[in-house]
């Protein structure tokens, strides 16, 4: 397994943001994490990225315990992440932003630049390469975040609502980009609210609600799960779904 999270829990005082969450990700997988707002998926995601230390449980990456490892160590091992609100380096150009990521595996300036240019080409940011990041709109920033992480040469990419806030046209382009990244051999874990993304890209989905994983499986099956429907639509809707029985 590339990533194994066992019984991961995160408490903030009395509040249990995540309770006993388990996840296994094999090399080449595309996994989706979904759930209503405040369900605990982002906290779990931050635990996987090394941004938040779990209260309990263990996280193994390629057999190595990374439960309490720093974010930098995660990046060096090959775990890259994007942020829900893009955290681009505003005063640096697009090329410079991507070079920061490239420097991790290419310490020389010329090497880093060549690698960054390749990534910029792949992510469709070439014509903006010498503009400052602050001049980009939301879709551009999200694309830049993906490019920056790609430049670090990750084996596992954690995408935190990287496709949210895009127009239908931009969304299709972004889905194509994520597919292309997956084809290069990068494993993906995606937190997303847009079901189109989850249904199109992921092979397996984990559904969070109130800190617990309430369902997991193929996206087509999970969306029909009464517990999932209840989590999204509220008490009563799940019961009605159960009465109707599984959809054909």
């Amino acid at each position: 397994m590339l990533l194994e999270a066992k019984n991961v829990a995160k408490h903030f005082g009395e509040f249990r943001a995540v309770a006993d969450a388990n996840l296994t990700v094999a090399e080449g997988d595309v996994i989706g994490l979904i759930g209503p707002n405040g369900a605990g998926k982002s906290t779990f995601f931050n635990c996987l990225a090394g941004d938040t230390e779990p209260t309990a449980g263990t996280i193994l990456f390629d057999g190595q315990d990374v439960t309490n490892a720093s974010t930098e160590t995660h990046a060096r091992l090959g775990i890259g992440r994007t942020f829900q609100v893009p955290a681009t380096f505003e005063d640096m150009t697009i090329l410079e932003n991507v070079m920061v990521g490239a420097f991790m595996r290419h310490p020389g300036r010329a090497d880093a630049r060549a690698h960054a240019e390749k990534i910029i080409e792949m992510t469709g940011l070439r014509e903006h390469a010498h503009l400052r990041a602050r001049s980009l709109g939301t879709p551009g920033r999200k694309r830049l975040e993906i490019a920056r992480v790609l430049a670090t040469g990750p084996r596992l990419m954690l995408l935190d609502e990287a496709l949210a806030g895009l127009t239908p046209g931009e969304l299709q382009q972004a889905i194509t980009l994520v597919r292309r990244i997956h084809e290069t051999g990068v494993t993906l874990v995606i937190v997303e609210h847009i079901m189109e993304v989850i249904m199109t890209l992921t092979a397996r989905v984990l559904v969070f609600n109130q800190g617990h994983v309430i369902a997991s499986g193929k996206p087509q099956d999970v969306v029909k799960d009464p517990l999932v429907i209840e989590a999204y639509l509220g008490h009563g809707h799940g019961k009605r779904a159960r009465k109707r029985g599984p959809a054909a």
Binding site: G80, D91, F103, R148
Partner: peptide, 21 residues
Amino acid sequence: RFGYYMRAVKAGERAAKSLGV
């Protein structure tokens, strides 16, 4: 590389860390 890292740290420590800085 050190110069780029300094500017990345200035722009956002959390994002810089996530890129291995």
